[in-house]
């Protein structure tokens, strides 16, 4: 039962001597010098451009409509859709996060107390798939239109009903889905642009966070002064 190696562990393993002699354990042996291979960086898995990876086109449209209400366009930033929050969520759901990667997933699964934390075996990806379908079903029944086709005021009222747990989505709780998509949207809003959201570092500019700036030795004792550094992404280039 070998554990699956994550990406960094694979990189680490290739940077050191793997023992393949049958008289010794299969392990990375560190002896004599610290393992070091120049250039062995640990790059992030960035969001690639292109079509939806997880969402169907209909789901993608619905999510874009939701994130555009959670983070509306105003004088502070463009809206969640234009900032890439839906793309962020799509790439996250297609990846490890969407499938409870790294979670303890052995059963039995049973409901516990609130303090015992999340105990469901329904992954975030499955949660979105079911909840988005149920949301559009509800809107078609109630208004004869899909969520994305409703006027903003109707959209806001529906989101508020989800937030207040007044609207059930099939067998799932509307509030659970509200919490899930709100958390994911705001995470995408603030995450580094390499993950698909926070386009042009708009969220960082809104609040004055300089991003991955790394060195504030010149600023630490300049108390109560605005930091004038332009924000920078982990890709190292502003605005990219």
């Amino acid at each position: 039962m070998a554990p699956s190696l994550n990406r960094r562990e694979v990189i680490a393993a290739t940077a050191t001597a793997l023992i393949l002699d049958s008289r010794d354990a299969r392990a990375t042996l560190i002896k004599g010098a610290l393992p070091f291979h120049p250039g062995a960086t640990n790059a992030p898995d960035v969001a690639q451009p292109g079509p939806w990876r997880f969402f169907t086109p209909e789901e993608g449209t619905t999510v874009e409509a939701i994130v555009d209400r959670l983070i509306p366009a105003d004088n502070l930033t463009p809206g969640g859709k234009d900032l890439g929050c839906a793309i962020f969520i799509d790439r996250q759901l297609a990846g490890s996060y969407g499938h409870f990667g790294g979670h303890y997933m052995k059963g039995p699964f049973q409901r516990g107390t609130k303090q015992q934390g999340q105990q469901s075996d329904v992954t975030p990806a499955e949660h979105y798939r079911k909840a988005l379908a149920a949301l559009d079903d509800h809107c078609k029944q109630a208004f004869g239109k899909r969520f994305a086709e409703l006027p903003d005021s109707e959209k806001d009222a529906i989101i508020k009903d989800l937030e207040d747990d007044k609207l059930k989505l099939a067998e799932g709780s509307g509030q659970d889905f509200f919490k899930q998509i709100l958390n994911d949207t705001q995470t995408g809003f603030f995450a580094d642009p390499v993950y698909g959201g926070n386009k042009d570092m708009a969220a960082w500019k809104m609040i004055g966070f300089p991003g991955a700036h790394y060195d504030y030795r010149e600023w630490v004792d300049r108390h109560n002064q605005p930091v004038t550094l332009a924000p920078v992404s982990i890709k190292g280039h502003p605005n990219r």
Binding site: E9, A12, T28, A43, T187, G211, Y214, V232, I234
Partner: peptide, 22 residues
Amino acid sequence: PWRDPTAEFTPPVAQDELRFRI
């Protein structure tokens, strides 16, 4: 695994709230 902070966490790779904190 072996972890080499100088190689694996070079700035700005390490300054990634989503990946490491969240």
